[in-house]
């Protein structure tokens, strides 16, 4: 079995949840194999992250360098190309960093690439059979990947939930002296924090969340009336913000807000992983969708197949008349 590596995403001195998830995914590929976690950064934060990662990995390679203070995918790619064996198996999260690094890294390593993996079905000599989705989660596929010349794999965050893990106590090896030239043509400047809006949807107990099924800007009002009747706050999926029908601060999802309501009512939302990734604390999820096969019905508690545009005013009326 080729050597297994993962990249540890971290922020503010804390490892991301994907550190444990990738450890589990790596174990599925090479059961019992030693897995090396690669951690880049600087100073005390980096040391803290290495400590946390050592709970999940038998070996941590630490790279401390001023040019790695911010995880610039171009610099990290240079580092990894210097470092990784040509037949290595490299695991990354399918998040905004993994999407930035993965495809180009695979090309430079002359390795295969497979993204947004949700399951591993079989491990054979020089080959992996993995599970992923296409068409916005509406179809599943098995994919065969030839890994004989190495492979870069990105995993959907949350698809390998770890239980009872984290007692490995791995060894931390400082590899900083092996860092070569890291010049980049894409220079990081700064992070601009998302703007806060008129309401804070993260504080709401009940959310009425609308998606592309709302069809028209004029219908947003109908959702607002329902929310008012319920004592709820209006949230939405990304296309509603892209269309500028609601403020960005109302968007639920990985590139929006993370919400923890008691009740989440999703209307005309298909249930993409980027949307569902913003819902935490297992609320009671009600999904209203006109398509009985919409993926959101797999994760909702209660489902209703209806046209939301007819459903919303009727529900409002019922609540108001009670």
């Amino acid at each position: 079995m080729a050597q297994l590596f993962t990249y540890i995403v971290h922020k503010g001195g804390l490892v991301d949840d994907t550190a444990a998830e990738l450890a589990l995914a790596a174990q599925k590929i090479g059961s019992g194999a030693s897995v090396t976690a690669i951690v880049t950064g600087t100073g005390a934060d980096l040391d803290a992250v290495c400590q946390q990662a050592s709970k999940f990995y038998s070996q941590i390679w630490k790279f401390d360098h001023a040019d790695l203070a911010y995880p610039n995918a171009e610099a990290i790619r240079k580092l990894l190309v210097q470092l990784l064996p040509s037949d290595g198996i490299f695991l990354l999260p399918h998040d905004t960093f993994g999407m930035d690094l993965g495809p180009g890294l695979a090309v430079k390593l002359k390795s295969a690439y497979t993204a947004d993996i949700i399951g591993i079905d079989a491990v054979e000599e020089g080959n992996l059979k993995i599970v992923r989705q296409e068409f916005a989660g509406m179809a599943y596929t098995h994919v065969s990947v030839d890994i004989s010349d190495g492979v870069v794999l990105t995993f959907r965050p949350g698809s390998f939930q770890s239980e009872g893990q984290g007692a490995v106590n791995g060894q931390i090896v400082d590899k900083s002296s092996e860092i070569g030239e890291l010049n980049v043509n894409r220079r990081f400047i700064e992070i601009v924090e998302a703007e806060t809006g008129d309401v804070d949807i993260t504080k709401a107990d009940v959310l009425v969340s609308i998606g592309r099924g709302i069809e028209d800007q004029d219908n947003v009002e109908v959702a607002e009336e329902l929310a008012e009747a319920m004592g709820a706050v209006v949230a939405c999926s990304r296309p509603i913000v892209d269309a500028k029908w609601l403020e960005k601060s109302r968007q639920v999802g990985t590139s929006g807000q993370t919400v923890k309501p008691k009740v989440y009512m999703a209307l005309g939302i298909s249930g993409s992983f980027q949307h569902m990734g913003g819902i935490k604390g297992s609320p009671f999820i009600v999904a209203v969708n006109k398509n009985a096969k919409a993926p959101i019905f797999q994760v909702a508690d209660v489902g209703i197949v209806e046209d939301m545009l007819e459903f919303m005013p009727e529900l409002t009326e019922k609540i108001e008349s009670a």
């Binding site: 596929t141 065969s144 990947v145 797999q298 209660v302 209703i304 209806e306 009727e314 529900l315």
Partner: peptide
């Protein structure tokens, strides 16, 4: 090196409890 083998319908958990009946019935239950 990467080949799609098939499309399939996975065996998933139970999923949502689907509310049945006419609009009014569904709304009452909800």
């Amino acid at each position: 090196k990467v080949k799609r083998l098939d499309y399939f319908v996975p065996e998933l958990g139970e999923g949502a409890e689907m509310l049945e009946g006419g609009m009014e019935e569904k709304i009452d239950k909800l």
